[in-house]
Simulated scan of single mutants.
Amino acid sequence: MYVCICNGVTDHQIREAAVNGVRTVAELTMRTGCGATCGSCLDMAGSLLDAHHARAEREFSLPILGLSQAA
């Protein structure tokens, strides 16, 4: 779906940008143009970035062992 109508940025492009390291809406705007014109899409774009990174942290987090557990 189109998130930024003004610049033709889709949710797929936002998720792809997140996979490629984009963490903030400001960086997303610089890389894709999302939100650069009228800004009405910035809340949704930010939510998509946050959801992607929250999901990635849950899926790829490793438990941290204390030194007493590692030996």
Rank of each mutant, 00 (worst) to 15 (best):
Met1Ser: 13
Tyr2Arg: 14
Tyr2Thr: 12
Tyr2Pro: 05
Val3Arg: 01
Ile5Met: 14
Ile5Leu: 13
Ile5Ser: 15
Gly8Asn: 13
Gly8Ala: 11
Gly8Leu: 06
Val9Thr: 06
Val9Pro: 00
Thr10Trp: 11
Thr10His: 11
Gln13Tyr: 02
Gln13Met: 15
Ile14Trp: 00
Ala17Asp: 01
Ala17Cys: 06
Ala18Leu: 08
Ala18Glu: 04
Val22Trp: 01
Arg23Ser: 12
Arg23Cys: 10
Thr24Ile: 07
Thr24Asp: 14
Ala26Asp: 15
Ala26Leu: 13
Glu27His: 09
Glu27Gly: 03
Glu27Ile: 04
Leu28Ser: 01
Thr29Cys: 04
Thr29Arg: 03
Met30Asp: 14
Met30Tyr: 07
Arg31Asp: 03
Arg31Gly: 03
Arg31Ala: 11
Thr32Met: 00
Gly33Lys: 00
Cys34Pro: 03
Gly35Pro: 03
Gly35Tyr: 00
Thr37His: 11
Cys38Phe: 06
Cys38Trp: 04
Gly39Lys: 07
Ser40Ala: 13
Cys41Tyr: 02
Cys41Glu: 04
Leu42Glu: 08
Leu42Val: 14
Met44Val: 10
Met44Glu: 10
Ala45Thr: 03
Ala45Met: 05
Ala45Tyr: 01
Gly46Arg: 08
Ser47Tyr: 10
Ser47Gln: 15
Leu48Val: 15
Leu49Glu: 04
Asp50Lys: 12
Asp50Gln: 14
Ala51Tyr: 04
His53Arg: 10
Ala54Ile: 09
Arg55Leu: 15
Arg55Glu: 14
Glu57Cys: 03
Glu57Val: 08
Glu57Thr: 10
Arg58Thr: 08
Glu59Ser: 11
Glu59Ile: 10
Glu59Lys: 09
Phe60Thr: 09
Leu62Ala: 09
Pro63Leu: 12
Ile64His: 06
Ile64Thr: 13
Ile64Tyr: 02
Leu65Glu: 06
Leu65Tyr: 14
Leu65Asp: 04
Leu67Ser: 14
Ser68Tyr: 04
Ser68Gln: 08
Ser68Leu: 08
Gln69Tyr: 01
Gln69Met: 05
Ala70Ser: 12
Ala71Asp: 08
